[in-house]
Amino acid sequence: MQNSILISTNNLTKRFPMGEDAVVALDQVNLQFRKGEFAGLVGPSGSGKTTLLNIIGSLDVPSEGEVLVLGEAIEKIGHKAAARLRNRHIGFIFQTFNLLPVYTAFENVEFPLLLQRIPESQRKKAVWESLEWVGLTDKAKSRPSQLSGGQSQRVAIARAMVKRPSIMLADEPTANLDAQNSHNILQIMERLNRELQTTFIFSTHDEKVIQYLRRKITLDDGRVASDETFTTERAGS
């Protein structure tokens, strides 16, 4: 199970219409991600990193090719099945945190479990555990507007991990954080990856993040330019 393939893309191509033409965001991408990976999609803006994350997260569909995520063919998946896949198996961490503004930190973390209709006692236990993971139990009643950027991103991580997803997709998670907060966040994510065997896939061009990666996939103009796996100890290890 340790090395089982969770995600595979086969000749994945994504085109976006642009007037009468189309921009190719991803071009014949073939990748596989295994359980427990801590991988990053690296490349300049417009290289296709976020597009690939969105497709893996079933927020978008490929124009051509096949994408299998936990056995679900993303190119064929319906709205409801995609929603279920995201709700149960995929956690998202966004650059701008995307916390629900009218909810407290606790309620934000609780939200995915509400959608899963988890009983209240289990739900509360899971939420407190997640907040403990990110060290924010004292901020449970705070609204996003009362949290700093680093705290907000930690709440976002707690929200993503509370349902114990198989896959965590993090789109530029440190872009709005200072160096100290970035390292804190990355260490939390690395610990999650190590202890829960959650597969992490980052989209980043932040060197601080890249230092932590055990696999670095470089994208250039929508193509995989390189795919390196590091066996030596990395920054956070």
């Binding site: 997260g57 927020l59 709205h79 409801k80 279920r84 966004f94 995307n98 629900l100 503004p101 899963q116």
Partner: peptide, 16 residues
């Protein structure tokens, strides 16, 4: 709209 996108990303259906 960003919240709507977040809700969908968190697993809510569009009809939801």
């Amino acid at each position: 709209r960003k919240e709507i996108g977040t809700l969908i990303a968190l697993g809510m259906t569009r009809s939801g």
